[in-house]
Design a protein around this nucleic acid. Structure first.
Length: 612
RNA sequence: GCUCCCGUAGCUUAAUGGAUAAAGUAUUGGUCUUCGGAACCAAUGAUGGGGGUUCGAAUCCCUCCGGGAGCACCA
């Protein structure tokens, strides 16, 4: 593909010379056209405004002088391509008859590659082993795992899988919210209610947490009480610490159950509390560099022109904030892993905060952290040792009424959603033929794979930046553009291959039908789809390079591939193909489609059941 | 009040500044003595309003309207 584009570029460059247009700063843009009738490759010629002497390219076009035609007329004869001038500025390239075979040869070559590389097909070395830390999931403890944390968890996990596939060394860090004034609130409640910490449940913790906020509405002084208890915790009061630890242990047990349901395992779970003894050092550094000053008793950080607005670093009672803890976290990650980038997969509601955090970190360690994307122009980031801080703010999961809030008790428990999805999957399985040949246990596993897959896919297929309005009917969608649709195609491929006796073989002389060719082409672009704009080899020169951290590209790709295969499946017999060659080829194609779907689903963190 | 994000078909979404805006769902009609019907084919239907930049705008800029989020001792 790259070769062909280079070839076409060369042809056009030569034509520039022939047409006397060389050195005019004309731009050649070569891409796959939107429609087949426009050829295999398509070049758009556009020109800068050059007024001195001779012809201004753009004006010439509008005046109907057809400079592109002149260029087209000067394109040298090529062994590989025919071309066609398409007014006013397109030149479309077609593989000529001889190289038409060349094209299918290349596609068949790639098919062989899939057969050979299998689960490695599509992976690359683009990361060169550089380290990327991904901060994701990060729920707050002492609350149930809410629907609001679903997005961070599965988008984060998908990014984790993708970067690993691309040859990066990836470290996932679950930055638990397990420290802070919120514990003061809980401890206050536990103390005044005299609850037995050994018999607490998550539901109870959540209940008293909500209750605290209700009480505090009428009695604001309760917040001071909470802060006092948190201060005791930070000062190392052993009894308070015991309560805190009980809450934390209880939460982790609860979370493990959810992560198990989701099939997710995050490398590290340091959590905020881990940095408790590392904060004074950062505070000192901040003071030493004059980045913080005292205001109304608290230590704050201010920003130029008050944009973003200032932020509290250390509270007036001497306790720390998440701000200081996050700075400590950055330092720890830098020292521990020397990463190329730290990616924060967190909701957009924290956008302003991350602006403040990143700005401060850059001021504090200017030689260790990359300043910003704009200053990165022209720098080869692969050779730059400074770390890049990246904030991937995803849109919020909310109800029609607004944001879900634990404090107000309006959240939906993720576990309920997952169980509901599994139930629904089970209903469909029970109604199917498959249910007659599998055990009850297999049914349960399958229902889990399908139900959870549906929930994950439903979230991942949407662009991360958009808000998602929670709807019971939609999160557990099992039809159309859905997780189960893709899983279904995989099982179908699997089933056909199971019935075939032939060995997989790619026959060079196979004559390809249109659908087959389309499928082969799509299979061929799998790696490109994954790599496409996928990271930061070079900084974006546009302000919003929105697709860089978007797994939905992969969802689209897999869905389109599946549709094409279903279409093919419906039209052409595979096991009962006319000739042996045809059968062999179609079986190989079936295998390849199944394999690529499986590879893609794996990247998304979705399982591919053998049958369903 | 200030700042940021989002507005595409009834609903949910897609589209590196490039050709006739692409799907799912819903609705309507069709496909099965055939490898798995959680399927396939077809019809209907859309860029919030107004300016601007550009040869060319869903995409970039301005403005208005609508929705969401954030703005000092929560995280």
């Amino acid at each position: 593909m790259e070769k062909e584009i280079e070839e076409i570029r060369n042809l056009i460059q030569k034509a520039f010379v022939g047409a006397g247009l060389e050195g005019r700063g004309l731009k050649i843009d070569i891409k796959k056209p939107v429609k087949e009738e426009f050829g295999d490759f398509s070049a758009i010629i556009s020109g800068d405004k050059i007024t001195e002497g001779g012809m201004n390219f753009e004006i010439a076009i509008t005046k109907g002088k057809k400079p592109v035609e002149k260029i087209a007329n000067n394109i040298p004869i090529s062994e590989v391509f025919n071309f066609e001038f398409k007014p006013p500025r397109y030149i479309n390239f077609f593989y000529n008859r001889m190289s038409g075979n060349k094209k299918s040869e290349a596609l068949l070559e790639n098919l062989k590659r899939i057969l050979k590389e299998k689960e490695k097909y599509g992976s690359s070395k683009m990361g060169h082993g550089r380290t990327v830390v991904i901060d994701y999931s990060s729920p707050n403890i002492a609350k149930s795992f809410g629907i609001g944390h679903l997005r961070s968890t599965i988008i984060g996990q998908a990014l984790y899988n993708i970067y690993k596939f691309l040859g990066y060394k990836v470290i996932g860090d679950n930055h638990l919210g397990d420290w802070g004034t919120q514990f003061g609130k809980l401890i206050y409640q536990i103390k005044t209610k005299n609850l037995n910490i050994n018999k607490l449940t998550i539901d109870e913790l959540e209940k008293i947490y909500i209750e605290f906020h209700q009480l505090a509405e009428d009695n604001p002084e309760l917040k001071d009480e909470a802060r006092k208890w948190f201060k005791k915790l930070e000062d190392g009061d052993s009894e308070v610490k015991k309560i805190w630890k009980a809450c934390r242990d209880l939460s982790l047990k609860e979370f493990d159950r959810i992560y198990d349901l989701l099939g997710i395992k995050i490398d590290k779970t340091f959590g905020e509390s881990f940095y408790n003894d590392k904060m004074q050092e950062i505070f000192k550094e901040m003071k030493g560099r004059n980045l913080t000053r005292q205001s109304e008793g608290a230590w704050i950080v201010e920003f130029p022109n008050d944009d973003p607005p200032s932020l509290v670093l250390v509270k007036s009672d001497g306790t720390t904030t998440y701000f200081l803890r996050d700075l400590a976290t950055i330092k720890h990650r830098l020292e521990e892993w020397k990463p190329h980038a730290i990616i924060y997969e967190v909701g957009v509601d924290q956008q302003l905060y991350f602006k403040q955090l990143f700005y401060t970190a850059r001021e504090l360690w200017p030689d260790k952290i990359f300043k910003d994307e704009k200053s990165a122009k022209g720098i080869d980031l692969r050779k730059d040792s400074r770390v890049r801080l990246v904030y991937v703010g995803h849109g919020l999961m909310r109800s029609r009424e607004g944001k879900f809030s634990t404090r107000k008790g309006t959240t939906i428990h993720l576990e309920d959603v997952l169980n509901e999805a599994i139930e629904k999957a089970k209903e469909i399985i029970n109604a199917s033929e498959t249910s007659k040949v599998i055990t009850e246990e297999e049914k349960q596993i399958l229902a889990k794979q399908v139900g959870i897959g549906a929930v994950k896919y439903n979230d991942l297929r949407q662009h991360f930046r958009r808000d998602v309005i929670f709807d019971w009917g939609k999160v557990i969608n099992l039809k159309g553009n859905s997780g189960p649709y893709l899983q279904y195609v995989f099982t179908r491929c699997n089933s056909i291959l199971g019935k075939a006796r032939e060995r997989l073989k790619v026959n060079e002389k196979s004559k390809l039908s249109e659908v087959e060719e389309r499928i082969l082409e799509r299979l061929n672009s799998f790696q490109k789809e994954i790599e496409q704009k996928r990271f930061d080899e070079y900084p974006e020169d546009k302000e919003r390079g929105g697709n860089t951290y978007a797994p939905n590209i992969i969802c689209n790709y897999l869905f389109e591939l599946s549709q094409e295969f279903n279409n093919f499946y419906d039209k052409y017999p595979i096991l009962k193909a006319d000739t042996k060659e045809q059968k062999e080829f179609r079986l190989a194609l079936t295998f390849a489609v199944g394999q690529v779907i499986k590879n893609g689903l794996t990247l998304l963190g979705i399982e591919s059941p053998e049958r369903m």
